[in-house]
Design a protein around this nucleic acid. Structure first.
Lengths: 121, 121
DNA sequence: CTTATCGGTATGATTTTTCATACTAAGTAT
DNA sequence: ATACTTAGTATGAAAAATCATACCGATAAG
């Protein structure tokens, strides 16, 4: 599959994607990476405003718990989607922002929002 | 937010989306609708090949269990994304396909695949 | 008469996710 | 001295998701 494949080509050729090599589908691993109750929401918040402090994110995503937010952010950081910047102040300050890799998910949210505007009342 | 908003406008205005009315964000409800281990995968399979029989889907999504596949398909049908066509033959035959509403998620998968081709080794 | 087929259901167990709650450190403001 | 702040950790409980397994009905093939 070509890196410059257009949407029309995608539409025609989507059936070839998953059939190439069992590990080489460019869709399923992404789907799995973004699984969980909070990850997409966190990335979306960071699309909207970045950087954000831990407490700000927590407020936006209420009723998320500390544990959930911490774990999700840790995993997003491990996947290279989110950058964590820690300032050694008292009280502590930590800012989260999207990496370029994370920002590149914006088209996904755009597509989702297009669908949402069409189908959500 | 305008129905015809382009990606560039989206990129600029994404911060307005979630801020309109608490219930009116066109992204978060979609994210929630597609949550779970199997839903996106099922829709993606049906993007690739449609219609598909229960058993075919099960084979593609192995190691999914009957229960999981049944439940996910039922919920996707309730959400209007998937159509279930039952033929009264023996042995039974049931075919699943995407509705137009479901097919309209194709751009989401396209965006995901673009990201995947860029970032997945 | 037996077995196989297909699209599920039903059941209860197990695993995973999510949760509420309490707690910490280190300095600042009162 | 005390309380307040932030970004988490730690703990165990509760809830949800997922699992394996057995089973069904109706017919056709052997």
């Amino acid at each position: 599959m070509n890196k410059d494949m257009t949407y029309e080509e995608f539409q025609e050729k989507v059936s070839d994607i998953i059939l190439t090599e069992s590990g080489n589908c460019p869709v399923t691993p992404v789907i799995q990476m973004l699984q969980g109750k909070w990850k997409l929401q966190i990335i979306y918040e960071l699309c909207i405003q970045s950087p954000m402090r831990f407490g700000e994110l927590k407020k936006m995503l209420k009723p998320i718990t500390n544990t959930m937010l911490t774990n999700a952010l840790k995993e997003l950081e491990e996947d290279g989607l989110v950058h964590r910047e820690q300032y050694n102040e008292i009280p502590p300050r930590v800012e989260y922002s999207l990496t370029e890799k994370g920002r590149d998910l914006l088209p996904v949210f755009y597509a989702i929002s297009q669908w949402g505007m069409k189908y959500i009342p």
